[in-house]
Amino acid sequence: MGLFGDLFWSGLEKIGDAKLKYDERKIQREYEEACRRAEERHRQHEEKLERDRQRAEERRERERERAEREKAMRLSTLKSDTESAARELSNYKSSTVNPQLSSQTLKAQNAMRVSEAEMTNDVNSRINRQIEHDEVCDTSALKNELALVDDLLRKISQIEQGNAA
């Protein structure tokens, strides 16, 4: 090989070394860049997930609060209705049920606590007492007449027995 040849080959070697060195750095750079970009994307993704979580949480919170508000409103309305119905019931008992009752205890008892069976017994007893009173008034003369008839029948029977052949 001559000098030229030697120069040529040594030059080529140098260029080859340099080129190689250049490619490794580039790859390293590109790799690092890629890693950085990947990390960036990952971070952005994490941030997005976090934001989504927060938004979902906020939405749930808002919904819960709204539900609580609605529940409170519904309860308030229901309580008001219940009170109104209970007041109406109490008035009905005082004005309509109590005049039918004889028992002061039942009259004094609250509408929601009083026993319907006891009230019915009380009313039935009162009506039956009135019936018995009316029956006594209306039939006492007839019952006396019946007793007189029975007394005479007994005496007639005694006379018959005393005079039987």
Binding site: T96, V97, A111
Partner: peptide, 11 residues
Amino acid sequence: LSRFTSMRGNV
């Protein structure tokens, strides 16, 4: 009594 029962049931 029927009306009373109904009203109380409602309450």
